[in-house]
């Protein structure tokens, strides 16, 4: 049994392919990149004798074998009562562009109860030295963090005191008043929301964004609602949401175009930083 647990810590074998590689894709303008994306579950030690489960989405070949790393990491924090699987498309998109997406599970799918899980998952994956995930991340390297809805409340908690987090994006949400986001000015921050979001009201999102300091941008995606960000939105989800006025494929493409620029810029891509400062993203109302 102990051996099985150790293997659970260091998964072996290929991941499940989410997106097949395609050299014809260039990863620009919101498109997927040329790499494949595959995922594996992982369990890591946390809080001394506890554990955190997470899913890791990584750049892969067509068989789900990881490409040679290390790659920069994106921590994604799930929204309230929405499973990490429903956000896998975001991490998979990032993986095709050469990032490793890490989504920790949280008790009751409520990240606020275990705000540190994303950090434990990152450090746990970094420490893996055998099996499929070994070498995907460089221990102690820079990372970025983002989260949707309740995850957008937790992402600033992970970011605000951790100098490793060189970028933070809040999706359809805003930081809690108790999180001192004003105190950190040395990294790139983004608030991204949908114009038709019925859960995170626009005035609240804007007010939350105004608390961010340093280089920061606010993007409002036209026609996008709260659950356009998740796969498999239920009727109950949509009941309290606004009505999306554009196809999900279009709103997501416009959103990830901005998201990609923010990620690339956070890791030092000057061209992406110029794009953020220039604005002019299609289908996105822009403030900086």
């Amino acid at each position: 049994m102990v051996l099985m647990l150790l293997l659970a810590c260091a998964p072996t074998g290929p991941g499940e392919v989410v997106i097949a590689p395609d050299e014809a894709r260039n990863g620009l303008d919101g498109a997927e990149g040329p790499y494949g994306a595959a995922w594996l579950p992982v369990r890591v030690q946390a809080r001394v004798d506890g554990a955190v489960d997470a899913e890791v989405v990584f750049p892969s070949d067509a068989d789900g074998e990881p490409l040679d790393g290390p790659f920069p990491a994106l921590i994604f924090v799930q929204g309230g009562l929405v499973t990490p699987e429903r956000y896998r498309w975001i991490s998979a998109h990032a993986a095709t562009r050469g990032y490793v997406g890490i989504s920790a599970h949280h008790k009751g799918d409520l990240a606020i109860f275990e705000a540190d899980n994303g950090r434990y998952a990152l450090e746990g994956v970094e420490a893996i030295d055998s099996g499929t995930l070994a070498g995907l991340l460089e221990p102690g390297a820079d990372a970025v963090v983002t989260g949707h809805s309740l995850g957008g409340v937790v992402a600033p908690i992970l970011w605000v005191d951790d100098p490793r987090m060189v970028g933070m994006a809040i999706i359809a949400s805003y930081a809690a008043a108790s999180t001192p986001v004003e105190e950190r000015t040395d990294s790139l921050t983004l608030s991204l929301t949908g114009a038709e979001d019925g859960s995170a009201l626009r005035e609240d999102v804007e007010e939350g964004w105004e608390r961010l300091d340093g280089q920061t941008w606010l993007g409002v995606v036209e026609g996008m609602n709260h659950f356009n960000w998740t796969d498999d939105a239920t009727a109950e989800n949509l009941e309290g949401d606004g009505v999306a006025t554009r196809p999900q494929e279009e709103t997501r493409r416009d959103a990830v175009r901005v998201f990609d620029a923010w990620m690339d810029a956070s890791f030092g891509d000057e061209q992406a930083l110029d794009a953020l400062n220039a604005g002019g993203f299609s289908g996105v109302e822009w403030r900086q």
């Binding site: 004798d49 008790k107 009751g108 409520l110």
Partner: peptide
């Protein structure tokens, strides 16, 4: 409901 869900969910510890 949040507290209720929390009570029913598994927790963050321990060897106790």
């Amino acid at each position: 409901p949040v507290i209720g869900i929390g009570l029913l969910m598994t927790g963050a510890a321990l060897a106790d």
